[in-house]
Design a protein around this nucleic acid. Structure first.
Length: 541
RNA sequence: GACCCUUUAGUUCAACUGGAUAGAAUAGGAGCCUCCUAAGCUCUAGAUCUGGGUUCGAGUCCCGGAGGGGUCACCA
């Protein structure tokens, strides 16, 4: 429709014989009384034409030839907006087209043929996933779904590191608990992991292996801990409706020689030098104030180096776009990674990042700091035990990624009845219930006649429904799932208005038939929307 | 100190990227179930941190100021 409007508008603009015609922008006005589509083109022309915008708008409208079966009225309003109202026939055609598309309605092909990789969660296996990881996990998975709905082929990847000091301390923590259980002296490592889950892992070892390991060093404990914790993480993700396609071990970058190769390739380009016993990357060449250490004087790389190697590896795998989901704490490293890969000759625009601000946990009315090590955290599993997976996902998605999310545990727990996710699910369940009843009540003999839908509540519901693909598109492009939630709220709200104003059961069969078709389409949109959010669409509540 | 994010109704968030009368949800006040699900609906009350600037038009862009969060290690 917008294409059509642009066409007729630019035909009319020909009268001004402009050297350079302005870009015609169309938008959906906020208030329904301003029509269904609107353009500000007359205001943009006010300056070059030295005339007041309303007069210009009048001239444009006078020369406008439009198809009455698509546009029912054109008005000039406010400072010089030109407002269009869709013709009813157009609405019926649109609705019919949606019905034809069926369960695929909402999909677009704007990213058809693209291979997109999304890396998220990426928590090292040192403990259960916390509420803090939840935002990352849910955001990543939902962005992935949005990309799929706009036509891309998506792979979800979990990047982890199971080597290094953290993991050693983890192994030693399990070891200490193991020895304690067996009644032996044990020294708990400094900065060790104090959580109850460590004891659980130790208990399991005692149950399976008895005292076989009392003289062992820490590494078998680390391995046991790692596999137990990964199993736990996978379980949590599964519960949240998240499935990873790949797990990528950072260590493999060392084994394959990718790390060394990155350093030598950068060295060839004279972007790496040695000083003070360390190896430095000339980030000053990329506009930073200081150069950055890639390899410490101890011989260990800093995390930037494997990150660069990892991104190079991803791009070598042939993705058109790699999306990283990062917490705000990682934002500082991101430019270095981009500098690194562009120095290596990759296209940095193929790497994109979604930064989300931190989740502040509010417990007992006070914010508090979480630490995996100290075990004073709230796990995602605990949260889902309290409020369920649907509410958990919804909670993380309903706000823009770049706002600080305040997660009040008490509020989330009591949210059960008042949580906005139920508003959407309830609308869906209610439609299903009506459809079940209608099936018993009616058998239709005539072809569907959508022209029966004449009430305001009906036409405005139709108009809302056909914005669905656009809503998905905009949420996907911006990588902001909350936009889809806002849209679905509009759908649910437009439906309840319709539900209250227009009875479905008990009216003439032809009208009932048309209203059933509209209700079905609404249910479809809600269901597809909830699928993208990874939330169930119940048929009964 | 430098950089990034942020400041909108009592509270938690929106505002299609510069558009028209700033929307929801919850807190409050008033109503609505012999009627397809009241987890709902209809009223009502309530907000752009503070100065300047840019233009037809600013919550949105620019400059200054004030609050909150984060990052600035040869920690990951």
């Amino acid at each position: 429709m917008n294409e059509y409007l642009k066409e007729i508008l630019s035909a009319s603009l020909a009268q001004f014989q402009l050297e350079e015609s302005p870009e015609i922008q169309l938008e959906a006005p906020k208030t329904a009384s301003h029509g269904d589509a609107s353009t500000n083109v007359a205001m943009l022309l006010a300056k070059p034409l030295r005339n007041n915008p309303r007069a210009i708008a009048q001239q444009i409208v006078d020369e406008l030839n439009y198809d009455k079966t698509r546009i029912s009225s054109v008005e000039i309003a406010g400072p010089g907006f030109i407002n269009f109202r869709y013709a009813e026939d157009y609405l019926y055609n649109q609705l019919e087209a949606i019905i034809k598309q069926g369960e695929h309605f909402g999909k677009t092909d704007s990213r058809a043929g693209q291979k997109i990789q999304i890396e998220f969660v990426s928590a090292n296996p040192t403990g259960p996933l916390t509420v803090g990881h939840g935002r990352n996990a849910v955001l990543g998975d939902t962005v992935a779904r949005l990309m799929e709905w706009t036509g891309a082929k998506v792979e979800r990847e979990y990047y982890f590191n199971n080597a290094g000091r953290q993991m050693r301390v983890l192994g030693q923590s399990v070891q200490a608990r193991y020895l304690e259980i067996l009644g032996l002296d044990a020294e708990f490592p400094e900065g060790g992991y104090e959580g109850e889950y460590i004891k659980d892992i130790a208990r399991e070892l005692v149950a399976n292996k008895g005292n076989e390991l009392i003289d062992s060093e820490w590494s078998p404990f680390k391995e046991k801990a790692e596999s137990a914790i990964f199993a736990d993480i996978d379980g949590t993700l599964k519960r949240m409706n998240i499935h990873m396609d790949n797990h990528f071990n950072e260590f493999s970058l060392y084994e394959s020689g990718d790390i060394d190769s990155v350093v030598s390739r950068l060295r060839e380009k004279d972007l790496v030098y040695d000083a003070d016993g360390a190896t430095w990357f000339k980030t000053t060449e990329f506009g930073k104030e200081k150069d950055t250490v890639l390899i410490k004087s101890t011989g260990e790389p800093t995390y930037r180096l494997p990150d660069i190697a990892y991104h190079a590896n991803k791009l070598d795998r042939g993705y058109d776009l790699c999306i990283d989901i990062f917490g705000a704490d990682h934002i500082a490293t991101y430019p270095d990674v981009l500098s690194g890969i562009s120095a290596l000759g990759y296209d940095p625009t193929k790497v994109d990042v979604v930064v989300y601000q931190f989740v502040t946990i509010v417990k007992d009315g006070k914010p508090f700091k979480m630490s995996t090590r100290k075990a004073n955290f709230v796990t995602l599993d605990e949260l889902m035990d309290e409020v369920g997976a649907d509410v958990t996902r919804f909670f993380f998605l309903m706000r823009s990624p770049n706002t600080h999310l305040e997660f009040d545990i008490a509020q989330a727990k009591e949210a059960g009845e008042k949580n906005p996710v139920f508003y959407l699910q309830y609308a869906h369940a209610r439609i299903c219930s009506i459809l079940r009843k209608a099936e018993e009540e009616y058998t239709f003999e005539h072809a569907l006649d959508l022209k029966q839908l004449k009430e305001n509540a009906e036409t405005s519901l139709i108009k809302t429904l056909f914005k669905f693909p656009k809503a998905i598109q905009s949420a996907a492009d911006a990588k902001e799932p909350h936009r889809l939630i806002n849209f679905l709220n509009d759908v649910a709200s437009a439906f309840t208005t319709f539900y209250h104003d227009c009875r479905i059961i008990g009216v003439e069969p032809e009208l009932a038939q048309a209203r059933i078709a509209l209700a079905k389409t609404t249910a479809l949109v809600l269901k597809n929307g909830l699928i993208i959010l990874g939330i169930t669409a119940p048929e009964r509540m």
